[in-house]
Nucleic acid binder design. Structure first.
Lengths: 193, 193
DNA sequence: CCTAACTCTCACGTAAAGGTACGGGTGCCT
DNA sequence: AGGCACCCGTACCTTTACGTGAGAGTTAGG
Protein backbone atom coordinates (compact mmCIF):
# COMPACT_ATOMS: atom_id res chain seq x y z
CA UNK A 1 0.00 0.00 0.00
CA UNK A 2 3.03 2.21 -0.16
CA UNK A 3 3.77 2.27 -3.85
CA UNK A 4 2.35 5.59 -4.87
CA UNK A 5 2.34 4.98 -8.62
CA UNK A 6 2.24 8.45 -9.99
CA UNK A 7 1.74 8.35 -13.70
CA UNK A 8 0.02 11.56 -14.69
CA UNK A 9 -2.66 12.03 -17.24
CA UNK A 10 -1.42 11.39 -20.78
CA UNK A 11 -2.06 13.57 -23.84
CA UNK A 12 -0.55 16.79 -25.13
CA UNK A 13 -0.45 19.15 -28.04
CA UNK A 14 1.18 16.24 -29.83
CA UNK A 15 1.73 18.51 -32.81
CA UNK A 16 -0.11 17.02 -35.70
CA UNK A 17 1.68 19.42 -37.97
CA UNK A 18 2.11 17.74 -41.26
CA UNK A 19 4.92 19.12 -43.31
CA UNK A 20 2.31 18.98 -46.06
CA UNK A 21 4.21 19.97 -49.18
CA UNK A 22 6.44 16.94 -49.28
CA UNK A 23 8.91 18.13 -51.81
CA UNK A 24 10.84 15.08 -52.96
CA UNK A 25 13.59 17.58 -53.74
CA UNK A 26 16.33 15.23 -54.64
CA UNK A 27 16.18 11.56 -53.71
CA UNK A 28 13.56 9.39 -55.30
CA UNK A 29 14.81 5.87 -54.94
CA UNK A 30 12.22 4.04 -56.97
CA UNK A 31 13.35 0.49 -57.00
CA UNK A 32 15.09 -1.15 -59.91
CA UNK A 33 12.17 -2.06 -62.17
CA UNK A 34 10.52 1.19 -63.23
CA UNK A 35 8.59 4.22 -61.98
CA UNK A 36 5.81 2.25 -60.34
CA UNK A 37 4.28 5.04 -58.28
CA UNK A 38 2.74 2.79 -55.65
CA UNK A 39 5.97 1.06 -54.66
CA UNK A 40 8.09 4.07 -53.90
CA UNK A 41 10.26 3.68 -50.90
CA UNK A 42 11.20 6.52 -48.66
CA UNK A 43 14.14 7.10 -46.45
CA UNK A 44 14.08 7.95 -42.82
CA UNK A 45 14.01 11.69 -43.28
CA UNK A 46 10.93 11.50 -45.44
CA UNK A 47 9.23 9.27 -42.95
CA UNK A 48 10.14 11.71 -40.22
CA UNK A 49 8.70 14.63 -42.15
CA UNK A 50 5.46 12.87 -42.82
CA UNK A 51 4.90 11.63 -39.32
CA UNK A 52 6.13 14.64 -37.40
CA UNK A 53 8.62 12.47 -35.55
CA UNK A 54 12.32 13.10 -35.58
CA UNK A 55 14.85 10.85 -37.21
CA UNK A 56 16.25 10.04 -33.82
CA UNK A 57 12.85 8.94 -32.62
CA UNK A 58 12.47 6.63 -35.58
CA UNK A 59 15.88 5.14 -34.93
CA UNK A 60 14.81 4.59 -31.36
CA UNK A 61 11.60 2.89 -32.39
CA UNK A 62 13.64 0.60 -34.52
CA UNK A 63 15.95 -0.28 -31.65
CA UNK A 64 12.87 -1.18 -29.68
CA UNK A 65 11.73 -3.30 -32.61
CA UNK A 66 8.60 -1.29 -33.21
CA UNK A 67 9.38 -0.70 -36.86
CA UNK A 68 11.72 -2.16 -39.37
CA UNK A 69 12.68 -0.78 -42.78
CA UNK A 70 11.65 -3.01 -45.64
CA UNK A 71 15.08 -2.71 -47.11
CA UNK A 72 18.40 -0.96 -47.08
CA UNK A 73 19.95 0.94 -49.93
CA UNK A 74 23.30 -0.05 -51.34
CA UNK A 75 24.92 2.22 -48.78
CA UNK A 76 22.95 1.03 -45.73
CA UNK A 77 20.26 3.70 -45.91
CA UNK A 78 17.00 2.60 -44.37
CA UNK A 79 14.18 2.33 -46.88
CA UNK A 80 10.58 2.27 -45.77
CA UNK A 81 7.37 1.35 -47.48
CA UNK A 82 4.02 3.02 -47.05
CA UNK A 83 3.00 0.77 -44.18
CA UNK A 84 5.72 2.35 -42.10
CA UNK A 85 3.60 5.48 -42.13
CA UNK A 86 0.70 3.55 -40.73
CA UNK A 87 2.88 1.97 -38.15
CA UNK A 88 4.43 5.15 -36.92
CA UNK A 89 1.11 6.93 -36.76
CA UNK A 90 -0.27 3.96 -34.90
CA UNK A 91 2.53 4.20 -32.41
CA UNK A 92 1.71 7.85 -31.98
CA UNK A 93 -1.86 7.03 -31.20
CA UNK A 94 -0.88 4.44 -28.68
CA UNK A 95 1.36 7.00 -27.05
CA UNK A 96 -1.52 9.41 -26.96
CA UNK A 97 -3.50 6.70 -25.25
CA UNK A 98 -0.92 6.81 -22.52
CA UNK A 99 1.12 3.76 -23.44
CA UNK A 100 4.83 4.04 -22.89
CA UNK A 101 7.18 2.82 -25.55
CA UNK A 102 8.01 -0.20 -23.47
CA UNK A 103 4.37 -1.06 -23.14
CA UNK A 104 3.98 -0.72 -26.87
CA UNK A 105 6.98 -2.97 -27.17
CA UNK A 106 5.29 -5.76 -25.30
CA UNK A 107 2.09 -5.28 -27.25
CA UNK A 108 4.02 -5.68 -30.47
CA UNK A 109 5.96 -8.63 -29.18
CA UNK A 110 2.84 -10.41 -28.09
CA UNK A 111 1.27 -9.78 -31.45
CA UNK A 112 4.24 -11.21 -33.29
CA UNK A 113 4.60 -14.21 -31.06
CA UNK A 114 1.08 -15.49 -31.07
CA UNK A 115 0.70 -14.46 -34.65
CA UNK A 116 -2.02 -17.04 -34.95
CA UNK A 117 -4.36 -14.09 -35.13
CA UNK A 118 -7.38 -15.17 -33.12
CA UNK A 119 -5.59 -15.00 -29.83
CA UNK A 120 -3.86 -11.86 -30.94
CA UNK A 121 -7.15 -10.28 -31.78
CA UNK A 122 -8.39 -11.07 -28.33
CA UNK A 123 -5.31 -9.53 -26.77
CA UNK A 124 -5.74 -6.47 -28.89
CA UNK A 125 -9.32 -6.12 -27.82
CA UNK A 126 -8.35 -6.40 -24.20
CA UNK A 127 -5.82 -3.66 -24.53
CA UNK A 128 -8.14 -1.35 -26.36
CA UNK A 129 -11.02 -2.04 -24.06
CA UNK A 130 -9.07 -1.18 -20.97
CA UNK A 131 -7.61 1.84 -22.66
CA UNK A 132 -11.06 2.98 -23.58
CA UNK A 133 -11.99 2.82 -19.93
CA UNK A 134 -8.94 4.78 -18.97
CA UNK A 135 -9.58 7.31 -21.64
CA UNK A 136 -13.07 7.83 -20.36
CA UNK A 137 -11.85 8.23 -16.82
CA UNK A 138 -9.37 10.76 -18.04
CA UNK A 139 -12.10 12.55 -19.87
CA UNK A 140 -14.11 12.79 -16.69
CA UNK A 141 -11.17 14.19 -14.80
CA UNK A 142 -10.42 16.70 -17.48
CA UNK A 143 -14.00 17.82 -17.61
CA UNK A 144 -13.88 18.40 -13.88
CA UNK A 145 -10.70 20.35 -14.35
CA UNK A 146 -12.29 22.40 -17.07
CA UNK A 147 -15.11 23.18 -14.70
CA UNK A 148 -12.72 24.16 -11.94
CA UNK A 149 -10.86 26.45 -14.25
CA UNK A 150 -14.01 27.98 -15.53
CA UNK A 151 -15.22 28.64 -12.03
CA UNK A 152 -11.98 30.12 -10.91
CA UNK A 153 -11.93 32.40 -13.90
CA UNK A 154 -15.43 33.52 -13.15
CA UNK A 155 -14.41 34.24 -9.61
CA UNK A 156 -11.40 36.17 -10.75
CA UNK A 157 -13.43 38.13 -13.22
CA UNK A 158 -15.40 39.65 -10.44
CA UNK A 159 -12.08 40.75 -9.04
CA UNK A 160 -11.37 42.81 -12.07
CA UNK A 161 -14.12 45.25 -11.33
CA UNK A 162 -13.19 45.39 -7.68
CA UNK A 163 -12.11 48.73 -6.32
CA UNK A 164 -8.34 48.68 -6.82
CA UNK A 165 -7.82 50.39 -3.51
CA UNK A 166 -9.23 47.61 -1.38
CA UNK A 167 -7.91 44.47 -2.99
CA UNK A 168 -4.36 44.86 -1.86
CA UNK A 169 -3.46 41.59 -0.27
CA UNK A 170 -6.85 40.60 1.04
CA UNK A 171 -7.71 40.01 -2.55
CA UNK A 172 -8.08 36.28 -2.58
CA UNK A 173 -10.76 36.36 0.03
CA UNK A 174 -12.40 39.73 -0.16
CA UNK A 175 -16.16 39.98 0.20
CA UNK A 176 -16.97 41.35 -3.20
CA UNK A 177 -17.74 38.14 -4.94
CA UNK A 178 -21.40 37.65 -5.54
CA UNK A 179 -20.69 34.31 -7.12
CA UNK A 180 -21.16 32.36 -3.93
CA UNK A 181 -19.20 32.19 -0.74
CA UNK A 182 -16.29 29.78 -0.87
CA UNK A 183 -13.14 30.61 -2.73
CA UNK A 184 -12.35 28.09 -5.49
CA UNK A 185 -9.44 25.81 -4.67
CA UNK A 186 -7.46 27.04 -7.60
CA UNK A 187 -7.65 30.54 -6.23
CA UNK A 188 -7.23 29.71 -2.59
CA UNK A 189 -4.10 27.71 -3.24
CA UNK A 190 -2.17 30.80 -4.11
CA UNK A 191 -2.40 32.23 -0.67
CA UNK A 192 -2.09 29.10 1.37
CA UNK A 193 1.46 28.92 2.53
CA UNK B 1 10.91 25.00 -36.69
CA UNK B 2 12.99 22.05 -35.64
CA UNK B 3 12.17 21.89 -31.95
CA UNK B 4 9.69 19.07 -31.82
CA UNK B 5 8.45 19.77 -28.30
CA UNK B 6 7.05 16.49 -27.27
CA UNK B 7 5.11 16.86 -24.07
CA UNK B 8 2.28 14.38 -24.16
CA UNK B 9 -1.22 14.87 -22.96
CA UNK B 10 -1.40 15.30 -19.18
CA UNK B 11 -3.76 13.54 -16.77
CA UNK B 12 -3.79 10.11 -15.12
CA UNK B 13 -5.39 8.04 -12.44
CA UNK B 14 -3.83 10.54 -10.04
CA UNK B 15 -5.03 8.45 -7.15
CA UNK B 16 -7.30 10.58 -5.04
CA UNK B 17 -7.13 7.99 -2.33
CA UNK B 18 -7.51 9.67 0.99
CA UNK B 19 -6.06 7.72 3.84
CA UNK B 20 -9.31 8.66 5.60
CA UNK B 21 -8.85 7.28 9.10
CA UNK B 22 -6.11 9.62 10.18
CA UNK B 23 -5.07 7.95 13.36
CA UNK B 24 -3.02 10.49 15.30
CA UNK B 25 -1.43 7.45 16.90
CA UNK B 26 1.23 9.08 18.99
CA UNK B 27 2.42 12.59 18.32
CA UNK B 28 -0.01 15.47 18.73
CA UNK B 29 2.09 18.59 18.91
CA UNK B 30 -0.51 21.20 19.78
CA UNK B 31 1.40 24.39 20.28
CA UNK B 32 2.28 25.81 23.66
CA UNK B 33 -0.94 27.57 24.65
CA UNK B 34 -3.60 24.87 25.00
CA UNK B 35 -5.58 22.28 23.11
CA UNK B 36 -7.12 24.67 20.62
CA UNK B 37 -8.44 22.16 18.11
CA UNK B 38 -8.31 24.52 15.12
CA UNK B 39 -4.62 25.30 15.49
CA UNK B 40 -3.25 21.80 15.47
CA UNK B 41 -0.09 21.43 13.55
CA UNK B 42 0.83 18.32 11.70
CA UNK B 43 4.13 16.85 10.75
CA UNK B 44 5.22 15.84 7.33
CA UNK B 45 3.99 12.27 7.54
CA UNK B 46 0.49 13.38 8.38
CA UNK B 47 0.50 15.84 5.53
CA UNK B 48 1.71 13.09 3.26
CA UNK B 49 -1.06 10.77 4.34
CA UNK B 50 -3.73 13.36 3.83
CA UNK B 51 -2.59 14.50 0.42
CA UNK B 52 -1.57 11.17 -1.01
CA UNK B 53 1.90 12.50 -1.69
CA UNK B 54 5.02 10.91 -0.28
CA UNK B 55 7.25 12.50 2.27
CA UNK B 56 9.98 12.70 -0.28
CA UNK B 57 7.71 14.60 -2.62
CA UNK B 58 6.87 17.10 0.08
CA UNK B 59 10.53 17.59 0.83
CA UNK B 60 11.07 18.20 -2.83
CA UNK B 61 8.29 20.74 -3.02
CA UNK B 62 9.89 22.55 -0.17
CA UNK B 63 13.24 22.61 -1.91
CA UNK B 64 11.49 24.19 -4.84
CA UNK B 65 9.93 26.67 -2.45
CA UNK B 66 6.40 25.61 -3.19
CA UNK B 67 5.55 25.03 0.45
CA UNK B 68 7.08 25.97 3.73
CA UNK B 69 6.28 24.58 7.18
CA UNK B 70 4.87 27.19 9.54
CA UNK B 71 7.29 26.08 12.19
CA UNK B 72 9.76 23.53 13.35
CA UNK B 73 9.55 21.46 16.48
CA UNK B 74 12.24 21.62 19.10
CA UNK B 75 14.03 18.84 17.28
CA UNK B 76 13.78 20.30 13.75
CA UNK B 77 10.62 18.46 12.76
CA UNK B 78 8.63 20.30 10.14
CA UNK B 79 5.26 21.45 11.39
CA UNK B 80 2.49 22.39 8.99
CA UNK B 81 -0.78 24.22 9.40
CA UNK B 82 -4.02 23.48 7.65
CA UNK B 83 -3.26 25.74 4.72
CA UNK B 84 -0.47 23.39 3.75
CA UNK B 85 -3.18 20.93 2.82
CA UNK B 86 -4.74 23.47 0.51
CA UNK B 87 -1.41 24.29 -0.95
CA UNK B 88 -0.42 20.72 -1.67
CA UNK B 89 -3.77 19.89 -3.16
CA UNK B 90 -3.52 23.01 -5.25
CA UNK B 91 -0.15 21.88 -6.52
CA UNK B 92 -1.69 18.56 -7.39
CA UNK B 93 -4.35 20.25 -9.44
CA UNK B 94 -1.85 22.34 -11.27
CA UNK B 95 0.07 19.18 -12.03
CA UNK B 96 -3.08 17.61 -13.33
CA UNK B 97 -3.46 20.64 -15.53
CA UNK B 98 -0.18 19.69 -17.07
CA UNK B 99 2.08 22.16 -15.29
CA UNK B 100 5.51 20.90 -14.40
CA UNK B 101 6.90 21.61 -10.99
CA UNK B 102 9.25 24.17 -12.45
CA UNK B 103 6.37 25.94 -14.08
CA UNK B 104 4.54 25.93 -10.80
CA UNK B 105 7.67 27.32 -9.29
CA UNK B 106 7.64 30.35 -11.52
CA UNK B 107 3.93 30.83 -10.95
CA UNK B 108 4.54 30.90 -7.23
CA UNK B 109 7.55 33.14 -7.54
CA UNK B 110 5.67 35.63 -9.63
CA UNK B 111 2.86 35.62 -7.14
CA UNK B 112 5.18 36.31 -4.27
CA UNK B 113 7.16 38.96 -6.03
CA UNK B 114 4.40 41.15 -7.32
CA UNK B 115 2.44 40.51 -4.18
CA UNK B 116 0.61 43.72 -4.83
CA UNK B 117 -2.32 41.49 -5.70
CA UNK B 118 -3.92 43.23 -8.66
CA UNK B 119 -1.12 42.40 -11.00
CA UNK B 120 -0.86 38.97 -9.49
CA UNK B 121 -4.52 38.40 -10.08
CA UNK B 122 -4.07 39.31 -13.69
CA UNK B 123 -1.18 36.91 -14.02
CA UNK B 124 -3.20 34.19 -12.41
CA UNK B 125 -6.04 34.77 -14.80
CA UNK B 126 -3.69 34.57 -17.74
CA UNK B 127 -2.34 31.26 -16.60
CA UNK B 128 -5.72 29.77 -15.95
CA UNK B 129 -7.15 31.10 -19.15
CA UNK B 130 -4.46 29.54 -21.27
CA UNK B 131 -4.69 26.34 -19.32
CA UNK B 132 -8.38 26.26 -19.91
CA UNK B 133 -7.70 26.47 -23.62
CA UNK B 134 -5.19 23.69 -23.40
CA UNK B 135 -7.51 21.58 -21.37
CA UNK B 136 -10.19 22.00 -23.95
CA UNK B 137 -7.84 21.08 -26.75
CA UNK B 138 -6.84 18.02 -24.80
CA UNK B 139 -10.47 17.16 -24.32
CA UNK B 140 -11.02 17.32 -28.03
CA UNK B 141 -8.09 15.02 -28.67
CA UNK B 142 -9.22 12.58 -26.08
CA UNK B 143 -12.71 12.52 -27.45
CA UNK B 144 -11.30 11.70 -30.84
CA UNK B 145 -9.26 8.95 -29.27
CA UNK B 146 -12.31 7.62 -27.52
CA UNK B 147 -14.06 7.51 -30.84
CA UNK B 148 -11.15 5.73 -32.49
CA UNK B 149 -11.07 3.17 -29.77
CA UNK B 150 -14.77 2.66 -29.91
CA UNK B 151 -14.64 2.13 -33.63
CA UNK B 152 -11.77 -0.26 -33.46
CA UNK B 153 -13.52 -2.27 -30.83
CA UNK B 154 -16.62 -2.42 -32.95
CA UNK B 155 -14.53 -3.62 -35.83
CA UNK B 156 -12.87 -6.23 -33.71
CA UNK B 157 -16.16 -7.40 -32.35
CA UNK B 158 -17.22 -8.47 -35.79
CA UNK B 159 -14.06 -10.54 -35.83
CA UNK B 160 -15.17 -12.53 -32.88
CA UNK B 161 -17.97 -14.16 -34.79
CA UNK B 162 -15.75 -14.75 -37.77
CA UNK B 163 -15.17 -18.31 -38.79
CA UNK B 164 -12.04 -19.32 -36.85
CA UNK B 165 -10.77 -21.26 -39.80
CA UNK B 166 -10.42 -18.35 -42.13
CA UNK B 167 -9.01 -15.60 -39.98
CA UNK B 168 -5.55 -17.00 -39.68
CA UNK B 169 -3.24 -14.18 -40.57
CA UNK B 170 -5.39 -12.35 -43.02
CA UNK B 171 -7.43 -11.39 -40.02
CA UNK B 172 -6.78 -7.70 -39.93
CA UNK B 173 -8.13 -7.18 -43.35
CA UNK B 174 -10.58 -9.93 -44.02
CA UNK B 175 -13.78 -9.19 -45.86
CA UNK B 176 -16.19 -10.12 -43.14
CA UNK B 177 -16.72 -6.73 -41.64
CA UNK B 178 -20.04 -5.23 -42.50
CA UNK B 179 -19.12 -2.13 -40.58
CA UNK B 180 -17.71 -0.29 -43.57
CA UNK B 181 -14.73 -0.85 -45.71
CA UNK B 182 -11.54 0.69 -44.33
CA UNK B 183 -9.74 -0.86 -41.43
CA UNK B 184 -9.46 1.49 -38.43
CA UNK B 185 -5.96 2.85 -37.93
CA UNK B 186 -5.69 1.29 -34.54
CA UNK B 187 -6.27 -2.10 -36.06
CA UNK B 188 -4.26 -1.62 -39.21
CA UNK B 189 -1.23 -0.49 -37.27
CA UNK B 190 -0.69 -3.94 -35.92
CA UNK B 191 0.02 -5.44 -39.25
CA UNK B 192 1.92 -2.60 -40.86
CA UNK B 193 5.53 -3.45 -40.57
C1' DC C 1 34.94 15.29 -59.98
C1' DC C 2 32.88 18.24 -56.50
C1' DT C 3 29.58 19.57 -53.39
C1' DA C 4 25.44 19.94 -50.67
C1' DA C 5 22.28 17.41 -48.28
C1' DC C 6 21.27 13.34 -46.31
C1' DT C 7 22.35 9.20 -43.61
C1' DC C 8 25.12 5.88 -40.87
C1' DT C 9 26.58 4.14 -36.12
C1' DC C 10 28.12 4.94 -31.71
C1' DA C 11 27.81 7.27 -27.44
C1' DC C 12 27.08 10.53 -24.03
C1' DG C 13 23.66 14.18 -22.21
C1' DT C 14 19.21 15.78 -20.29
C1' DA C 15 14.92 17.04 -17.79
C1' DA C 16 11.17 15.46 -14.63
C1' DA C 17 9.69 13.71 -10.41
C1' DG C 18 10.64 11.52 -7.36
C1' DG C 19 12.87 6.58 -5.12
C1' DT C 20 16.03 4.68 -2.00
C1' DA C 21 19.51 4.34 1.29
C1' DC C 22 22.50 5.95 5.18
C1' DG C 23 23.54 7.22 9.72
C1' DG C 24 21.86 9.52 13.24
C1' DG C 25 18.28 12.27 16.10
C1' DT C 26 13.18 12.73 18.36
C1' DG C 27 8.80 11.93 20.62
C1' DC C 28 6.10 9.47 23.33
C1' DC C 29 4.71 5.33 25.82
C1' DT C 30 5.65 2.08 29.34
C1' DA D 1 15.63 3.30 30.54
C1' DG D 2 14.08 0.87 26.52
C1' DG D 3 11.69 0.72 22.24
C1' DC D 4 9.26 1.77 18.36
C1' DA D 5 7.74 4.76 14.88
C1' DC D 6 8.81 8.84 12.88
C1' DC D 7 11.85 12.52 11.23
C1' DC D 8 16.33 14.87 9.68
C1' DG D 9 19.76 15.98 5.92
C1' DT D 10 22.56 14.40 2.27
C1' DA D 11 23.35 12.19 -1.63
C1' DC D 12 23.29 9.16 -5.24
C1' DC D 13 19.90 6.16 -8.34
C1' DT D 14 15.98 5.43 -11.82
C1' DT D 15 13.07 5.76 -15.88
C1' DT D 16 11.34 7.89 -20.24
C1' DA D 17 11.91 9.61 -24.72
C1' DC D 18 14.42 11.43 -27.01
C1' DG D 19 18.54 15.56 -28.00
C1' DT D 20 23.03 16.39 -29.45
C1' DG D 21 27.21 15.82 -31.21
C1' DA D 22 31.28 13.20 -33.65
C1' DG D 23 33.36 11.22 -37.44
C1' DA D 24 32.60 8.94 -41.62
C1' DG D 25 30.06 7.25 -45.66
C1' DT D 26 26.34 7.99 -49.50
C1' DT D 27 23.38 10.10 -53.09
C1' DA D 28 21.96 13.03 -56.54
C1' DG D 29 22.88 17.04 -59.19
C1' DG D 30 25.80 20.12 -61.82
Amino acid sequence: MKSNRHHRLPLAASSHDDGVAVSPAHSEPSSASDGDSSTELMQVGDLARETGKTVRALHLYEELELVRPVARSKGHYRLYGADALLRIRWIGKLQDMGLSLTEIQTVVREWEELNSAPRAMVKMREVYRSKLEETRATLRRLRALEHDLHQSLAYLDTCEVCDPARLLNACTNCDMHGCGDHVPDLVAGFRAN
